[in-house]
């Protein structure tokens, strides 16, 4: 019997796509989100479609003090943990509303890093397992239009890179996913260039393949790697005068 895949943030569009992708390959699933009731419909859907077993769990990424219990109380230890949690409100709103800014920083960095640390501990002991963090290209360089979100994702990316470094000899895979634009609720109403915008299914498939190939860091659409090379290489003196 295969160990399950745990998806943190399973009500999101990317979370749902990942659930379908793994269930289609026969993996049992553990779906976790803040509102457990919202997962019940997905549980029914996934079980009927793919005949896999699905359990649902309440998980509040901001309540870091509950994370240890959450990990402890899972009915079965997952083999793969995928953290899809993310929050990206309007930057201007964050500038005016600092509690919201704090929530962005905590949701995108603090919570995911803490919960993945707990799994890292267990995976390291058993000598296998896969930890996947969905970070963001926004974390590659802070920009005026998005720096609360971007800085938190930068922290998360650095965390994942450090964790990978630590676990490199232990047999545990740590995968950083940098999706670029994705057509989801988060980006609804934004004008996104179609060439740079992935569908949630693409993100899910890319993760599935990257796990199989033991990758470390992936950009979902390869073009983003080159875009970010350029964006990172612009001198700060010039960068600060550009509108990006």
């Amino acid at each position: 019997m295969t160990a399950p895949v745990l998806i943190l943030g399973a009500t999101s569009d990317i979370g749902r796509a990942i659930a379908h992708c793994f269930a289609a390959q026969g993996y049992p699933l553990q779906l976790a989100a803040r509102q457990r009731s919202r997962l019940e419909l997905d549980k029914a859907d996934l079980e009927i479609r793919y005949g896999v077993s699905v359990s649902v769990h309440e998980f509040d990424v901001l309540a870091v003090e509950t994370h240890a219990d959450f990990v402890q109380q899972l009915p079965q230890q997952p083999a793969i943990v995928i953290c899809v949690v993310g929050l990206m409100p309007d930057q201007k709103e964050c500038e005016q509303n600092l509690p919201l800014a704090l929530k962005v920083m905590r949701t995108n960095y603090e919570g995911p890093a803490i919960v993945l640390s707990l799994f890292a501990q267990r995976f390291e002991q058993q000598g296998f397992g896969t930890l996947v963090g969905i970070s963001s290209v926004a974390g590659e360089r802070g920009r005026a239009s998005n720096y609360f979100y971007g800085s938190a994702k930068a922290g998360f990316t650095a965390f994942l890179s450090g964790l990978r470094h630590r676990l490199a000899q232990s047999g545990v895979q740590v995968l950083t996913v940098l999706p670029g634009y994705v057509n989801t609720r988060m980006t609804e109403g934004m004008k996104l260039p179609s060439l740079l915008t992935a569908e949630p299914q693409e993100v899910a498939n890319a993760i599935f393949t990257a796990i199989a190939k033991k990758k470390d860091v992936i950009y979902v659409r390869p073009i983003w790697r080159w875009i970010m090379v350029v964006i990172r290489s612009i001198p700060e003196s010039l960068f600060k005068r550009l509108s990006l």
């Binding site: 419909l41 997905d42 029914a44 859907d45 009927i48 479609r49």
Partner: peptide, 16 residues
Amino acid sequence: NRLLGFNPQTGQLIAE
């Protein structure tokens, strides 16, 4: 786009 239930006795499918 979720399937919500299937009854193999009656063939009734519940779908969004």
